[in-house]
């Protein structure tokens, strides 16, 4: 198994795809960090300058101490992890597309061995992407936010943890879908459509039907819940007493409307990744490589 993991790792490092996708990931993360940081700063400036004392009384702290950057970071992480997901999606579909899968299967004890080795290597890559995303999101936010809006060391650590987890899980999900739909273009289009359009529409419909709690069990809803719930928890931990209605609004801002607790969200998405991978495995196992 160690041999196959090394082989799969070499596959990823001997072509330019890893950095070809890592660069736009970093740019996107930085851009979203900068933009959301600015937006949060505007909001805080506005809140501080107007007569919204009631709100600050309500939250128990003055606006300049609101850790609004957390919401932006959660959103920035969510959008940036689309790239590691695409990277993962090309793991198996790319090999089928280029017909290198033949040699891969000829040199592995079984197809399951190949796929597991691949999954392990892409977990590692997911973590690397996650760290890079956190670094650039953090840079963007730090650059545009004043110190009062930034989390403390514990908050940074927690966000980094969920960012890396989120990136790993998204990569794993991509690997599974890439095995399930052995077509690079098809896989990528489907993933982008689903994560950027279809499920967002679904969230709207579910909210309209007044069953927002279902959202937390959907793939995008649960992965957003992982980072969003942490952002909301961190925000609330310094914001005093907040009524439930406001908390729902905050969750929506963080992109975690209807989401479960962060660790539950993570488990739900891990479940989705597992289901997709199992499906991809079943397809790959019985597939005739012609």
């Amino acid at each position: 198994m160690g041999n196959l993991v090394q082989a799969e790792l070499r596959k990823t490092t001997t072509t330019g795809l890893w950095w070809g996708l890592l660069i736009p990931t970093a740019v996107l993360a930085l851009g979203w960090g900068l933009a959301t940081g600015l937006l949060g700063q505007f909001f805080v400036d506005f809140a501080s300058s107007s007569d919204v004392d009631e709100v600050s009384d309500f939250l128990g702290v003055t606006p300049d101490q609101w850790k609004v950057s957390l919401f932006g970071m959660a959103r920035a992480i969510n959008i940036s992890t689309i790239f590691p997901m695409i990277f993962g999606a090309m793991a198996i579909s790319g090999e089928i597309n280029r017909r290198t899968i033949t040699t891969t299967f000829l040199t592995a004890p079984s197809r399951m061995h190949s796929m597991l080795a691949k999954m392990l290597v892409y977990v590692l890559w997911g973590a690397i992407y996650g760290l890079v995303i956190m670094l650039f999101v953090g840079l963007g936010v730090v650059f545009t936010s004043s110190a009062g809006q930034l989390p403390d060391a514990g908050g940074w650590a927690m966000l980094t943890l969920v960012c890396v987890m989120s990136s790993i899980l998204m990569t794993m999900f991509g690997v599974g879908v890439g095995a399930l739909i052995p077509n690079v273009a098809g896989t990528i289009v489907l993933l982008l459509l689903y994560f950027l359009v279809i499920e967002n529409v679904l969230h709207g419909v579910l909210a309209y039907l007044e069953v927002p709690s279902v959202i937390g069990f959907l793939p995008n809803g649960s992965i957003n819940g992982l980072t969003g719930s942490v952002a909301v928890d961190l925000f609330l931990s310094t914001a005093g007493v907040v009524p439930p209605e406001i908390e729902d609004v905050l969750r929506a801002i963080a992109g975690a409307a209807g989401a479960l607790d962060w660790w539950w969200s993570g488990l739900v998405f891990l479940g989705w990744a597992g289901v997709v991978f199992a499906g991809g495995w079943a397809v790959t196992q019985s597939k005739d490589i012609t």
């Binding site: 082989a7 070499r10 280029r98």
Partner: peptide, 22 residues
């Protein structure tokens, strides 16, 4: 119809599968 990744060098291609075989 046995494929190669066009961007990988011949040596790297062989090294990938050398490690797979052990």
């Amino acid at each position: 119809a046995q494929g190669f990744h066009p961007a990988r060098s011949a040596r790297n291609h062989l090294r990938v599968y050398a490690s797979a075989i052990g």
